[in-house]
Design a protein around this nucleic acid. Sequence first.
DNA 1: GTAGGGTTAG
Length: 682
Amino acid sequence: MQTLAPSDTLHQHFPQGLHFSLLKSSKTHQETQQLHAFSLKTGIFTHLSVSSRLLSLYADPKINNLRYARSVFDRIQHPTLVLWNIIIKCYVENQRSYEGISLFAELLAHFLPDEFTFPCVIKGCAKLNALKEGKQIHGLVLKLGFGLYKFVQSSLVNLYSKCGEIGSAQKVFDEIDEKDLILWNSLLDGYARCGEVKVAMKVFEEMPEKDTYSWTVLIDGLAKSGEVETAREIFEMMPKRNIISWNTMINGYMKAGDVNSARKLFSQMSTRDLITWNSMIGGFELNLRFVEALEMFERMLKEEFRPSQATLVSVISSVSGLASLAKGRSIHSYIVKNGIELDGVVGTVLIEMYSKCGSIDSALAVFRTINHKKLGHWTAIIVGLSIHGMAEHALKLFLEMRKIGVKPNAITCVGVLNACSHAGLINDGRGYFKMMINEYGIKPTIEHYGCLVDMLCRAGYLEEAKGTIEEMPMRPNKVIWMTLLSGARIRGNTKIGEYAAYHLIEVAPETIGGYVVLSNMYAVAGEWDKVSKVRDMMKKRGLRKEPGCSLIEHRGMHHEFIVGDKSHPQTKEIYSKLSEMREKLKLAGHIPDTSQVLLYIEEEEEKEAELEHHSERLAIAFGLINVDAGCPIRIMKNLRVCNDCHSVTKLLSKIYSREIIVRDNSRFHHFKNGLCSCKDFW
DNA sequence: GTAGGGTTAG
């Protein structure tokens, strides 16, 4: 401080010229701040020369402190056009283009923009994909006669390329006399981005010169249009490759689902950057190779790379895919230890992860710690609560969200409707469906109609559900038909069941569920000839029912059980626990619901398997033996829980005073004190 | 005392 800031006495003798010269040479952030403080203290800040210099120092890419730049700017009483330009640019460069564009609108009240203003603000529009605003500004450019300025033209080509208006980009491009590499690259980028690879190739060939950027943009375009092989050829032909080209190629493979080629490329790289790791981890996750994604993450940490938000998003999503609560908790603690903010997408996927892993309590805990809750966080927790059957809580949060003025999107509404349907709140559901359309202007998608149909089916309004399906503006998919079919089965309505099954088999002949539900329905109705007809149909098409399978995680290990499984090392204990369970259930007055046995259309092995050897019972027995008292027993099941297992699990939760959480193929059941969170509605 | 594109992961 002493060396930089002259004392107040010195200042009295020398006018601002001295300080100006002090300000002039290049400065570090700290020095700039000291000068800033000094100029405020002594009052020389009021000299435009000083404040301007401070502003440009803060806005300089080397220092790039938007907050301080803005505070300097705000203190200047009459900023010049140059200063407006600087502050707008600073916003755009700091990914806050939206505010940059607002400032531009403010600027218009004081000045006419110049040839330096336009490139900045147009770049901001390009970054935001704000085509409408961009076009308005283009109009202003023409009106004010800046249409022939090189940098303005360049930024326009870039704008239209980025926003997918390649025709307009080409038009501006054609009007330019002297085209340089940057301009060609912008155009090439535009064609590659909008999937016009053929034209992109042509542009590429026409280009008088090319740099690594040009080659890379082309590779990316080819890979994204599904031509990975051509992309690889271009990659091999490149005269000079940089790390971005390698990363682009890896991504191309990952997008194409060619995980092995991506991995091979990765192993050949001599240097890797954060994006390389993220591409690999994100690629594994994209291709549902969750275990490999997590292994890659471990390796990344070992090689001392610091994960970014993007890394964590992929990693946490992989954990959700594996439904491994233990892994999820360990990554969460990594995040806490490293002081990583949860206010962004990381918070959202963390909430999702906990709810998908069965711990809605942890999801709620994360939700509560987030300071600036954004739509994504609200949506994640509402959807989470809805799949856990906690409709009241979900709706309460939805109201709270609306109260503070957060506008729901289509996905939030799926959560809300799903909550209503899982809890049988049909009137609320209908109301929210209307509210979504009228109040928020959200066009219902097939998922929303799915919730509506589900709601109606659960309430037994099968004809109305059928009518809704017939009147929807889109073609029903297999989920819709499956919903109607299940509804028909629960109500024993064979007529609608056949109708739904017929359509289901038409839309998705490979979906096993349809045949199974149909044949079960016939079995209950005693129509055995039809049962065997369905069975023959399945055989002819080579379809087999997926065996029921339950999974339980214990001390970071997964234990998997199928019906009548005897392969587990603890089999002896598990089966003796099962006998004990049988006795206790009998004492509690449980009468097995054998109607479900009939419903199994599968062959010998399943006929033999008695209800009490259903995979979830084995998993529960394992849980009762191994999971510490006081901790919930968490089970994941690939199929729907059968009626008998559902009532047994309720009883067991009371008999053993244990919380049992079961995830079936569509939702969670929380069994506690003899009751289930689904209120027997599933 | 300002000045164009910035490609790849999410």
